[in-house]
Design a binder for these strands. Sequence first.
DNA 1: AACGAATTCAACCGCGCGAGT
DNA 2: CACTCGCGCGGTTGAATTCGT
Length: 253
Amino acid sequence: MVRAPCCEQTGIKRGPWTAEEDMTLVAHIEQHGHSNWRALPKQAGLLRCGKSCRLRWINYLRPDIKRGNFTSEEEDAIIQLHAMLGNRWSTIAARLPGRTDNEIKNVWNTHLKKRLDSSSSKTSGQAAPKRKAKKPAVVASALEGPTSKPASSPGHSLSMSPEQSLSTSSATDYSMTSSLENTGSSSSWEEFQIDDSFWSETLGMSVDSSSFGMETCDTFSVDSASPSSSNDEMDFWVTLFMQAGDMQSLSQI
DNA sequence: AACGAATTCAACCGCGCGAGT
DNA sequence: CACTCGCGCGGTTGAATTCGT
């Protein structure tokens, strides 16, 4: 079965979003929600495919998006979660409130992977040779841009101040990072490499969720928009991985 | 100042999965 | 049970931006 590409229709616009399109999309979603992405662009009067609208909303227009540079805590969390989960960006993103899978994926591919590569190549690694300090100008311009650049959607908390961002998410951030810190430390990410023994040990353990109390799930902020059971299930596994990580690092002490 | 190289990140593409019929 | 549809995910692309020479 060959499915026609969703954007095959003629007249469908592609490329960067304009401020007007952003506004239209945001206004429509605020008013009607986004129960049906495919129908949304037509209802909203946008010349975009539903997929594009969904991506724009999720990656940029959602009011709870936290923009700006990643903190070192967030980067550590990404590294450790990636070691446990692999390229499951959406799952990793669910652990980092306000961050999108796309953003995390980009950060991983552009910064973190290189950093890890270089730090693993030279064991007592200094940080990766950052070619240049992360340019705040990009973010700044993104938050100011009058053109199709981001943050041009007025009336939205896209341009949260760092303080605001922290205040809205610090609780979950820090509960998370603290639990991660318990697992060893940000510098020894190798401890989170999953080997076969880990799987056999972990899966061999009695999977009794009550033994974990699932209390760590409370420390994670599950994306409020997706309280699905699959998310709960993923929470469970992530929690399990976390706990196993704790055990591994403890056993190494 | 101008140019090319390097980097970043928003957006697109294709696939798999689950729900509905 | 088979099929269709829509959504979500991960990988990739390419324009814009920044830096070094």
